[in-house]
Design a protein around this nucleic acid. Structure first.
Lengths: 204, 204, 204, 204
DNA sequence: TATGAATGAGAATTCATTCAT
DNA sequence: GATGAATGAATTCTCATTCAT
């Protein structure tokens, strides 16, 4: 019944890997255990053996997904850097994460759209870690007089959501407007960095 | 079998209205026809009589939803205004739309997350209209030397997606951080307007 | 509720005509009132107005179909002819009927397969008229010493069923064995006549 | 999703057995999966687990049914016998099959009436085997100068269809004419054998 | 007569979950 | 740990029939 917290077996890893893709592709309701089993190449009952239930599997997937992002982004932000650099690194690291694994941004957006309907608490806590990191940067910058005061939440949503949107909307945009050349992710990231830094500049 | 294109009957309207809510709340897969029928107060077979299938109903809902937004936003942008004002009106009108009807932003984000998996072509075309409107504003501004050149798509995604995210993430944010006062939508809108205008300012 | 026995209106005729085809093509259970209405080009409720129910419509169709056959076959058999000729005319006339309107043989076979599950009494009576006609021929022939005694039923089933089978099985046979040239119906009829007459010959 | 081709499990056999009866009794459209499940005593979902769909189940049933007939009839025809005996054995064996299992003849007639609308290809191939067997007998007989040339198809349809008709039409005939004594199947078979042999006799 | 709009009672199919082996 | 075989509870969709106009 409970999600195992022990070192996950090879099979469990395989299942989780596939499940992450399926949940990103079809959402929680749209993901079908039979298809997942077939896709993974394991018996359906094995999934239940390892994860207890569909929700248990989803929890494990989301927590795994978001703890990875939080770990990497937070690790990339060094307190020795200036707040401007910290901000840039935060954005760049997050961007790199979702670019390397689009399942993250897709799942993030799904959960945001669903109001976190299926979001497990541990996964939510990982997002919170990210937010606190950004909050720290902002507060330091504001206290130093380098940033104009701004809601950390506003920025957080604009950065994580905005970049996620950009990555996810690529297929849709291409089907809407094929003549316009799309920005590369690194260009997009730079634009976001620039925009955020502009927004934080103290106007005098 | 075919979705009616005639003037929709009273019952059809009622069904569509409820369905828009349900689809926004639970997504395509999470919406249950029985519940929808019960919620609407009509017989389940009536839904099929009017819309043919679940997908047919979804198509009608999304098209209705997005054509409303496109109509209102485009109508609010007057060619007599300066490009700065046009931009502000575009953002404000879109913001007003999704604030008045959060189903729009939720559905928009769901579809963006799903890569348009269930998105019907006519609904997609409505989004295209919005994009073209913004594109026109940008191009005019750039040609006048008032805007720094920028990808219309970047802006479009940041505005529509960013605002949608902000509106939709409210419940999630509140569960993460209850001590921080949330921005009102009008404040958020102003911030977005400011940020976008800053981003478009010709530097030096 | 009751099948109208008055002169059928133009619409009623149109419906019946289409229904006969549909019932032959898909059987009673396989025929769908919506499709029939669409096929006929009338409103579904009209069918109910004219025929009361699906079963009522089926009854009307079958009775119409089989009374036509019985009328024509019986009319073609003249008491002035020899029993050999009467037999030939019986077979030829029946053959001509089902060749001109394959719906007859198809419906006949369906009902025989279904054990008359949906067969209305009036339609059954029409088949009885045919049987009595054949019975008369046989009895006369036997009494005259021209026919060897034989069960009328055996012959009846072999003639009506056999010819129906031949006509109906054409598409199936062609998909099984495309290289063999199929007999024309008139040839088939002649073979049946010959076979039946051989079978009735008094052996000495 | 795919019909299993492995050795069928006990449950699968049970389902198939019941389904064969139901399909014969009510036809494809008239057979209801709920009733079948109740009749078999298994869960409805089990039927789908084993056969994928109603059509899949039907395919399996028809193929099983007709391969049995073809096997037995073909096995009964020995090349050592004279063509007259071969012919008699063919007819007698087929007759014995459909007498022992009336579902065969009912299903055969239903499919002939429906023009093979639901008939799966493998089942059709079994009928083809029977036809080829008869064809071989005829050709040998004709080549030996013992049979008058005749279309194998004509005979095939008259024998299989004729006997099926006779067996199936019993209930109908009895309701039409209760006073006439019905032929026993063995008598009917003999009559058919005699008739066919008469028809094939070389007239000089 | 004719028709668009219902609707109740199904009927096919799906799916998360369990269980014996 | 792994798997084939269940199964109950949905869930989508269908269809004969009715009814107000």
């Amino acid at each position: 019944m409970l999600t195992k917290l022990k070192k996950p077996s090879k099979t469990a890893c395989l299942i989780q890997e596939c499940a992450i893709k399926q949940f990103a592709m079809h959402g929680y309701d749209g993901t079908i255990m039979d298809e997942l089993a077939a896709d993974t190449g394991v018996n359906k009952a094995s999934i239940y053996y390892h994860f207890g239930s569909k929700q248990g599997l989803y929890d494990a997937c989301m927590t795994h997904l978001f703890s990875g992002v939080a770990d990497h982004v937070i690790a990339s932000v060094s307190e020795d850097d200036s707040v401007w650099i910290q901000l840039e690194k935060f954005i760049t690291a997050f961007s790199a994460e979702i670019y390397a694994n689009p399942n993250i941004s897709i799942s993030l957006m799904r959960e945001m759209a669903a109001g976190g309907e299926n979001m497990p608490v541990p996964a939510r806590q990982q997002m919170q870690r990210l937010l606190f990191c950004l909050k720290g940067i902002i507060e330091t910058g504001v206290n130093n007089g380098m940033f104009t005061p701004v809601q950390p939440l506003t920025l957080h949503v604009m950065i994580t959501g905005g970049l996620s949107l950009y990555v996810n909307s690529a297929p849709m945009r291409q089907s809407i407007e094929s003549d316009t050349v799309d920005l590369s992710v690194s260009e997009m990231t730079k634009e976001v960095v620039k925009m955020v830094q502009n927004g934080l500049r103290v106007s005098e």
